[in-house]
Simulated assay, not measured.
Amino acid sequence: MATHLITGAGSGIGGAVAEVLHGRGDDLVLLARNDERAAALTERFPGSRTVVVDLADPDAVDRIAGLPDRLDSLLHVAGVVELAPVAELRAEHLREQLDVNLVAPALLTRTCLPALRAGRGIVVFVNSAAGLSAGASWAAYAASKFGLRALADSLRSEEMENGVRVTTLFPSRTATPMQEKVHEQEGRTYDSSRWISPETVAATMLHVLDLPRDATIPEVTVRPLVPWTPR
């Protein structure tokens, strides 16, 4: 039975992949921002373990404890976004996006490396199309995601000899609560049918997780069939 540590399992892509892994009987360790969210995750995924930590607090992430000694995967799915042009960036929004989207994954991965080495596991970083190309008003979010790609590339080179595989997943616009928020910030009408379903991205992640150990998928991009056009 495999053991997976997942961030962002409360909704969207993280919730979709957790549903499948839980349904097939794997062990889940789920990170939650607070006790209320932890209780909701325990109710949704009976038998799973929850660990309370605020990913926006680097010191709390650095002190995290109670994690398994062996992991088959570490799935970084949680993320935050606040769109703004550089001229209007607020320091707290810049800091939060960097802390949640980049600093927390780096610190959590460092802590989990002994367990991942023991399990010859895989680290999956759910990035974004914004981690490949940055547009207007996406500077802070894209900077965090460009950094996340660099983190994954370095980790992949460092841990190859230890049997730890590293994959970066670049989904384009996906029908999640975050995407609904992005549309509101952009002043657009949100239509979830235009975008990739969380279940489709989760299926891509599962393909990566279930790949035989004689191969690895360093990067994979998932795009909707409907083209997105800027205003």
Rank of each mutant, 00 (worst) to 15 (best):
53 V>L: 02
73 S>P: 12
133 S>P: 05
70 R>G: 11
128 S>C: 09
128 S>K: 03
73 S>K: 06
80 V>F: 01
129 A>S: 13
112 C>W: 06
143 A>E: 12
140 A>M: 05
124 V>N: 10
146 F>D: 04
131 G>R: 02
136 A>W: 14
111 T>H: 11
71 L>A: 10
103 V>P: 00
57 D>C: 10
62 D>V: 06
110 R>C: 05
84 A>R: 08
88 E>M: 13
68 P>C: 15
116 L>S: 02
90 R>H: 07
126 V>T: 09
68 P>V: 14
86 V>Y: 13
111 T>K: 08
125 F>V: 00
123 V>E: 03
136 A>L: 12
117 R>Q: 08
118 A>L: 13
94 L>T: 04
131 G>M: 01
58 P>N: 13
87 A>E: 15
67 L>F: 15
82 E>Q: 12
76 H>A: 05
105 P>Y: 00
132 L>N: 06
100 V>H: 00
151 L>V: 15
114 P>T: 10
80 V>T: 02
81 V>C: 05
69 D>H: 11
56 A>N: 10
53 V>F: 04
49 R>N: 14
101 N>E: 02
123 V>R: 03
81 V>T: 14
90 R>N: 06
147 G>F: 00
81 V>E: 00
99 D>M: 09
71 L>R: 14
61 V>W: 14
111 T>D: 10
133 S>E: 15
106 A>T: 10
62 D>G: 12
139 A>P: 07
54 D>Q: 11
128 S>M: 03
127 N>S: 12
79 G>N: 00
141 Y>D: 05
141 Y>V: 08
49 R>A: 11
112 C>Q: 07
141 Y>F: 05
76 H>C: 05
148 L>T: 08
73 S>D: 01
50 T>Q: 04
75 L>A: 00
92 E>L: 05
108 L>S: 03
51 V>P: 11
64 I>D: 04
105 P>C: 03
82 E>Y: 12
68 P>G: 12
50 T>S: 03
86 V>F: 15
68 P>F: 11
113 L>V: 10
89 L>P: 03
132 L>P: 01
127 N>W: 00
81 V>L: 15
92 E>W: 07
59 D>K: 14
150 A>I: 07
108 L>F: 10
118 A>Y: 10
90 R>I: 06
130 A>N: 06
72 D>M: 02
111 T>V: 11
129 A>W: 09
116 L>W: 00
131 G>A: 05
